[in-house]
């Protein structure tokens, strides 16, 4: 394996097998997170200004963060179940890095809720959770429990992660400074996660095209839920209706690259 200790190192220049081994390793994760997590306890620099939010904005942010916690819990439980299903040890190690990333996301969002004055986070999350997101979580965990690696990676690392990536990026553009900084760290992780999903499924479908119909089926089953989750999240963020098709485009492009439109 090539060791990523050079600032100019580009894993994309490696041969395919070496690339997979490199980017799915603990060492790669270690190098990647060092840059954006050092000196940022709970995802934020202690010096970042944290102006008080008015009541409406604060309440809206609490709802948004509660739903982020639901999404991250789904991802934590999904990723930990996927370690067992991973078809090789490199994929197991990658999934283990994703488990800790998702647990960190849950922790930083819970911490932000506490900063905003939420005392009983569990009750607040339960109260404000978008039902469509809870449906998505159940569907994802059913695929994991059924031992369906391809379908569960598709639901988790392609659908859920690209939804989160899109919503978090949109949110970070308009968020208060602390929430924006926390989101930037999370976005960096999500990029790695859906990169894995796209790469792994892309190679597996190229090797065996008979895998494609099942993924198409899963996509069709989840499309309605995904749409409701997107709508709910963008409503909470008060994103103008005119901007929403542009945001959904990223998810559609990823699905299209996998040939699953």
């Amino acid at each position: 394996m090539v060791i990523a200790d050079d600032d100019d190192f580009d894993p994309h220049l490696l041969e395919e097998d070496d690339f997979v081994e490199e980017v799915q390793s603990f060492e790669f994760w270690f190098g990647a997170v060092e840059g954006y997590l050092v000196d940022r306890p709970y995802g934020r620099s202690p010096d970042t200004p944290d102006p008080e939010l008015d009541d409406t904005r604060r309440d809206r942010l609490i709802t948004t963060l509660c739903n982020y916690c639901v999404g991250e819990t789904a991802a934590l439980e999904g990723a930990s179940g996927l370690v067992r299903l991973a078809p090789n040890h490199h994929a197991k190690v990658f999934m283990a890095t994703q488990v800790v990333d998702e647990a960190r996301h849950l922790e930083v969002f819970l911490r932000r809720l506490t900063d905003l004055g939420v005392v009983d986070t569990a009750t607040e999350i339960q109260k404000r959770a978008n039902p469509a997101l809870l449906d998505f979580k159940s569907s994802l965990l059913e695929l994991v429990d059924a031992g369906e690696w391809d379908a569960a990676v598709f639901a988790q690392n392609v659908i859920l992660e690209s939804m989160e990536f899109t919503v978090f990026r949109s949110h970070a553009e308009n968020a208060d400074p602390v929430t924006a900084e926390v989101l930037q760290g999370v976005i960096s992780d999500e990029r790695r996660h859906f990169g894995f999903g796209e790469n792994d499924l892309g190679r597996r479908m190229a090797d065996d095209p008979s895998r494609r119909p099942r993924l198409q089926e899963v996509k069709e089953q989840l499309d309605r839920i995904v749409l409701s989750v997107f709508e709910g999240a963008l409503d909470d963020l008060d994103v103008p209706v005119a901007d929403r098709p542009r945001l959904g485009q990223e998810y559609l492009e990823t699905v299209e690259r996998l040939g699953l439109t």
Binding site: F26, V83, A96, T97, V99, V100, A103
Partner: peptide, 8 residues
């Protein structure tokens, strides 16, 4: 979750 990554 941290233990999972330690073991990996």
């Amino acid at each position: 979750a941290t233990q999972t990554l330690d073991e990996a």
